[in-house]
Amino acid sequence: MGDYIATFFSHFGAMAFKKKCEKEGYPAVIMPVPRNLSSSCGTCVKFAGSPETAENWHSDELEQLAEILENGRFQVIWHS
């Protein structure tokens, strides 16, 4: 289990993903997208879980999924 950032094409997609995370018991917070990740809507969800968490809930709104590394950098692991 690690920390991840999911970016979205719309703010609505981010809101829906956050609600789904919370419903399933994964801590999640909506925040601005970090500068070194680009996003269509500028909103992302930081969550604790696994890459499968986001991939299993894939929707047309999910733009990319990045793992937060120990050094504060990001590793993009999935992109639409």
Rank of each mutant, 00 (worst) to 15 (best):
L37M: 09
G2A: 13
Q75A: 14
P32W: 11
M15S: 10
G49I: 01
F12H: 14
F12Y: 14
A28Y: 02
E24L: 10
I68K: 03
F47G: 01
I77E: 07
E52T: 07
C41Y: 07
D3P: 00
F17M: 02
C21T: 01
F47S: 00
P34A: 02
A16Q: 12
N71L: 09
I77M: 10
S39D: 05
M15W: 11
W78T: 11
E24M: 08
Q64S: 15
I5E: 02
S59L: 10
H79F: 14
S80E: 14
Y26G: 02
T53C: 00
T7K: 03
E70L: 12
L69K: 15
V33H: 03
R35F: 11
M15L: 15
Y26R: 04
P27S: 01
E55M: 15
C41L: 09
E22V: 07
T43F: 14
P51A: 04
V29W: 06
Q75S: 15
S38N: 14
C44E: 04
S10R: 06
V45W: 02
L65G: 02
R73P: 00
F8T: 00
T7R: 01
S10A: 11
G42F: 09
P34G: 05
S38E: 15
E67D: 08
K46M: 12
P32L: 12
V76H: 08
H79D: 15
E52R: 14
K23M: 12
A28D: 01
H58G: 11
E24A: 09
P27Q: 05
G25T: 05
E61F: 01
I77N: 08
L37I: 05
H79R: 15
N71E: 12
H79G: 10
A14W: 00
E22A: 05
L65P: 02
A66G: 04
M15D: 10
K46N: 11
A6G: 07
K46A: 11
F47T: 01
K18T: 00
Y26Q: 07
A28M: 02
L69E: 10
L69A: 12
E67K: 13
K20I: 06
F47N: 00
H58E: 14
A6C: 11
I68A: 05
